[in-house]
C-alpha cells in the first residue's frame, strides 16, 4: 500500500533526470520529498501519476499503476503547479470541468471551495488569482475526489501565514486518517513541522529515506543542517560557485 517507486529511470534526450530510483511512501504519515533544484523531484512525481512515462522501472499507487485507475481522482489527489487553470475561466468552472470527468456532484465542488476558503473567489477568473489563491484552487482540485493518496509539489509556495497554518493542519489530519501524504518543498523549517518521514534525492538518485527523527534530533541537528550535509555533493546550482555545478 502507499506509493511504491521501483527502479524508476527517466531520460529526457541525453539527460537522465531520474536514475534507478526506488523508495516507498507509507500511508498514515506525511512524507517529505526533498532535493536540490534539478534533482528529479518533479519528474518522479510526474512519473508516479502517469504524466511522464518512465524510461525504465515503474511506480505503483496502492498496488496499481496510475494509468490503470478507473477513477484516478478518487484514489489520488495531485497538485503539481499553482498555475493550472485557464486564465479566462472562473475558478468554479475549472473545478466543474474536473468534477465532470468523474461525475462528481455539484455539491462536492461547493464543498472543496468551502474547504479551501475560496468562496469569495469562486466566480473570479483564474487569471486574476494570486499565487496563493492558485495554490488553494490546486488543492481544491486535489481534494475533489476525497482521495486516499495526496501528491503535492510545493503546496506551501505563495500561501500567506494563515494558509500555511491551514495546510499544515490539513496534511496532518489527512495522514491521521490513514491516508498517504507525499509532498515536496524547499521550505525545510516549515516542512520539519509537518513531516514524519523524509525522502531525499539528488541528481536523480536516492540519498536518504529515513524518519525525520533519525535525521534530526537523533543526530542533534535541524532538518536544514541535515539536508545541507546530505546533498552537499548533489547540488547542481549553488550561489557563488564559479566553476558551475557538474564536476
Amino acid at each position: 500500500m502507499g506509493i511504491q517507486v521501483q527502479s524508476l529511470s527517466k531520460r529526457y534526450g541525453r539527460t537522465w533526470a531520474v536514475r534507478d530510483l526506488s523508495f516507498e511512501v507509507q500511508p498514515g504519515r506525511v512524507t517529505g520529498f526533498l532535493g536540490p533544484n534539478g534533482a528529479g523531484k518533479s519528474t518522479t512525481m510526474r512519473s508516479i501519476v502517469g504524466l511522464d512515462r518512465p524510461t525504465t522501472g515503474a511506480a505503483l499507487i496502492d498496488g496499481a499503476p496510475y494509468a490503470r485507475l478507473r477513477a484516478p481522482l478518487r484514489e489520488v489527489g495531485t497538485l503539481l503547479d499553482a498555475r493550472a487553470a485557464h486564465r479566462s475561466r472562473r475558478a468554479v468552472d475549472h473545478l466543474r470541468t474536473v468534477a465532470a470527468t468523474h461525475g462528481f456532484p455539484a455539491k462536492r465542488v461547493d464543498e472543496v471551495i468551502g474547504l479551501t476558503g475560496l468562496e469569495s473567489a469562486a466566480r473570479v477568473k483564474a487569471g486574476k488569482f494570486s499565487l496563493g489563491m492558485g495554490q488553494r484552487l490546486g488543492i481544491a482540485v486535489a481534494l475533489l475526489g476525497d482521495p486516499h493518496t495526496l501528491i503535492l509539489d510545493e503546496p506551501v509556495n505563495g500561501l500567506d501565514p494563515e494558509g500555511v497554518t491551514w495546510i499544515r493542519g490539513l496534511l496532518s489530519a489527512l495522514a491521521a486518517e490513514g491516508r498517504t501524504v507525499f509532498l515536496s518543498s524547499h521550505l525545510l523549517s516549515e516542512l520539519a513541522l509537518v513531516v514524519d518521514h523524509v525522502v531525499v534525492i539528488g541528481r536523480g538518485r536516492l540519498i536518504a529515506d529515513a524518519p525525520l527523527m533519525t535525521l534530526t534530533s537523533d543526530a542533534g541537528r535541524t532538518l536544514e543542517e541535515a539536508y545541507i550535509a546530505l546533498t552537499r555533493d548533489a547540488v547542481e546550482y549553488r550561489a557563488g560557485d564559479a566553476d558551475g555545478a557538474r564536476s
Binding site: 478507473r70 477513477a71 478518487r74 468523474h102 462528481f104 462536492r108 475526489g145 489527512l174 486518517e177
Partner: peptide, 20 residues
C-alpha cells in the same frame, strides 16, 4: 475511515463515480 479532513460530508459525495 472518517472523511472529516477533506470535507466529504457523506461517503456518497464522490460515491460511485468513475471516468467514462
Amino acid at each position: 475511515m472518517s472523511a472529516a479532513a477533506t470535507g466529504a460530508a457523506t461517503s456518497t459525495a464522490t460515491g460511485a463515480s468513475s471516468v467514462s
